[in-house]
């Protein structure tokens, strides 16, 4: 499987119903990003269904070299979307896992392969879905602000969704998106890579934090919680070391940022 981007993908018309695959990180650590995804979609007149039996896409085991374990978890996710609705994923990384790597994972099992291929066709990263399917256009009620966008490597290189993230942020009239140095470089998380080689991971993420802090961005926005936790967690640790009381780098999931900017009440 090459690094397919969104180019050439045929998008369906705006549906009445979608599934939300929130991801294990959002469920446990950033439920507000999941809630805000739901609110964004509902405002567009879409009914959002959350299959309660969802857990994790299986990527941690898949990328760590435990394919049997990944299959055991991933095969459960194949069964939880019975209706033919699109599946919206507020994470480029998990979306890429389900769209591109499930078919690889199940390549040796004709039945599961067919199922995973059928599911892959219905997997949409959130910003991709908002741009290409929903045709998201909402007024920006916020005041002038400057932010940095970090796009995860899987979103960028496997889903092509850095373009849709940029398009959404560009549609907000009062928001300026800065270009931090080496914007396309990885944040150094890489799942279990950060656990296995913490020193190398630290070197990479420290550079990412510095690149963002060298701009005038008031926060970093991302469509992936993994990168966001990595970057802001490193910044917060550096704050601790420097004995700063206020966080020097705030992070926000793009769903929350979009909802906040385009809602009158919550500002």
């Amino acid at each position: 499987m090459g690094l397919d981007k969104t180019q050439g993908r045929v998008y369906p018309p705006k549906p009445r119903d979608v599934y939300l695959y929130a991801t294990c990180l959002v469920d446990q650590f950033a439920p507000e990003a999941g809630m805000d995804t739901i609110l964004l979609l509902e405002r567009e007149g879409i009914r959002v269904h959350y299959p309660e039996s969802q857990t994790c896409c299986g990527q941690p085991a898949y990328s760590s070299g435990y394919p049997d374990e990944a299959r055991a978890v991933a095969s459960r996710q194949l069964t939880i979307f019975p209706e033919p609705w699109p599946v919206v994923v507020p994470s480029g990384s998990c979306a890429a896992m389900m769209r591109h790597h499930y078919p690889q994972l199940f390549a040796a099992d004709p039945l599961l392969l067919a199922r995973s291929q059928a599911l892959a066709e219905r997997i949409f990263e959130l910003t991709e879905f908002l741009v290409h399917v929903v045709n998201f256009k909402q007024p920006d009620y916020g005041s002038d602000c400057t932010i940095a966008l970090h796009t995860s490597c899987h979103a960028r290189r496997e889903m092509g969704s850095h373009e849709t993230s940029v398009a959404l942020l560009d549609s907000l009239a009062q928001v300026t998106v800065v270009q931090q140095a080496r914007i396309e470089e990885c944040c150094g998380f890489g799942g279990t890579f950060a656990m296995r080689y913490p020193e190398i991971s630290e070197a990479i993420v420290s550079d990412k934090v510095a690149a963002i802090q060298a701009t005038s961005a008031e926060r970093v926005v991302s469509a992936d919680c993994g990168c966001l936790f990595n970057i802001t967690g490193r910044a917060a640790r550096l704050d601790e070391i420097a004995q700063l009381d206020t966080p020097s780098l705030a992070g926000e999931h793009i769903a929350s940022f979009l909802l906040r900017r385009t809602s009158k009440a919550t500002l």
């Binding site: 469920d27 446990q28 439920p31 999941g34 913490p198 020193e199 991971s201 630290e202 993420v205 420290s206």
Partner: peptide
């Protein structure tokens, strides 16, 4: 594990998304 080697600890939310829903 090694996450906190360079980062502040991750805090689980008091209510999961499934609880909020």
């Amino acid at each position: 594990g090694a996450w906190t080697y360079s980062r502040t600890a991750l805090k689980p939310a008091p209510k999961r998304l499934r609880d909020l829903l």
